[in-house]
């Protein structure tokens, strides 16, 4: 507020602020996904790139139209709709029909985010709801997996099964057989040469992006490590075919959407707990549910539903893990008695 006489600005303290902005965080997270986009393009060709672009455009446009129609301030440049579209795109199979990303983005941005009050107020991760909606509505279209090819142009891509699909249906021996030997399997998973969603196949690309986010302190270890740690532990104990403690945690870590989910989706600020101790519980819950679905559920992959289910608990976890007030001896004092 400017004082009319003196021309001085009058505002409440503090009068200096950190340079970090919401916009910069959103665009940085988008940037951190660039390696995954590039690897998706490399393995699945222009069609995959187009799917991602279409998803981003649909998300941004949905947000723009909704805000205009509701006569709200148009804030599409904050980057959050872009990021939602990008994440949705990376979570789609490479050769889905073009209406798929459009419908998914509309569900993600308008229903999941805007109808709940816009940025900051949505309960569920928008991109994951978009994907869940598509998976439930178009189960067949959403489970057609292209065989990856290093060649950039491939007009009639052959289809394949995802490693997790093979693992679920035919077991680990068959999976190793498909990839030749065990080490070839691991290196292909690391590099990304396998069937799967556009952005989830290259573990290496995802780790590069995750390292960037951690270096920038945009995410901390709490959610991803507790998520991956719990999943590994359960995979090791219960994931084997020869009884307890014979499972292969590495195989489970590098397959499906676990890396993408743990570092880029479960860490979404809005839909995960804000308190660090609570984040550990949140990540642990995600890891547990993922493995429950993978090992006992009807779907080969459980990351998406695991994160969405844990999203429900975020507000509750934040309440339960409230920080200790300076000087308080026991639990923070409650002002109003229930």
């Amino acid at each position: 507020m400017k004082n009319e006489k003196s021309g001085l600005i009058v505002s409440v303290s503090p009068h200096i602020k950190d340079a970090e902005t919401t916009e910069r965080i959103m665009w940085s997270v988008s940037l951190s996904l660039l390696p995954a986009v590039l690897m998706g393009a490399y393995f699945f060709g222009p069609r995959a790139v187009f799917t991602v672009i279409l998803s981003i455009l649909s998300a941004v446009l949905s947000e723009y139209i909704f805000l205009k129609a509701m006569k709200k301030k148009v804030v599409v440049l904050d980057g959050s709709a872009f990021l939602t579209g990008l994440l949705l795109g990376l979570n789609l199979p490479p050769s889905v029909p073009f209406f798929i990303p459009v419908i998914g983005a509309i569900v993600a941005v308008i229903i999941t985010k805007q109808l709940f009050g816009g940025l900051g107020y949505n309960i569920f991760n928008p991109a994951l709801i978009g994907r869940a909606f598509l998976l439930v509505s178009f189960p067949r279209l959403m489970t057609v997996w292209n065989e990856p090819a290093a060649a950039f142009i491939h007009l009639d891509a052959r289809t394949t099964a995802t490693p997790l699909g093979i693992l679920k249906e035919e077991g680990v021996t068959k999976l190793i057989e498909v990839f030749g030997d065990k080490w070839n399997l691991y290196s292909q998973l690391l590099f990304g040469h396998r069937g799967g969603c556009i952005g989830e196949t290259s573990v290496l690309a995802l780790l590069i992006g995750a390292a960037f986010l951690m270096h920038k302190k945009y995410i901390t270890w709490h959610i991803p490590i507790s998520f991956l740690g719990t999943a590994s532990l359960i995979a090791w104990i219960f994931g084997g075919q020869e009884g307890f403690f014979t499972g292969d945690p590495l195989l489970h870590l590098m397959t499906g959407g676990l890396m993408l989910g743990a570092f880029f989706m479960a860490t979404d600020y809005v839909t995960s707990p804000s308190v660090k101790n609570g984040q550990i519980l949140f990540g642990t819950g995600c890891g547990f549910l993922t493995m429950l679905i993978r090992l006992k559920g009807g779907y080969p992959e459980g990351v998406m539903f695991a994160i969405l289910i844990m999203n429900c608990f975020s507000p509750l976890i934040d309440r339960g893990f409230r920080t200790k007030v300076f000087g308080a001896v026991k639990k923070p004092e409650q002002g109003a008695k229930q």
Partner: peptide, 14 residues
Amino acid sequence: MVHAADFGPCIRCG
């Protein structure tokens, strides 16, 4: 100065 006339919603970054 960082002009803060315009502020956004809480994104619960913590």
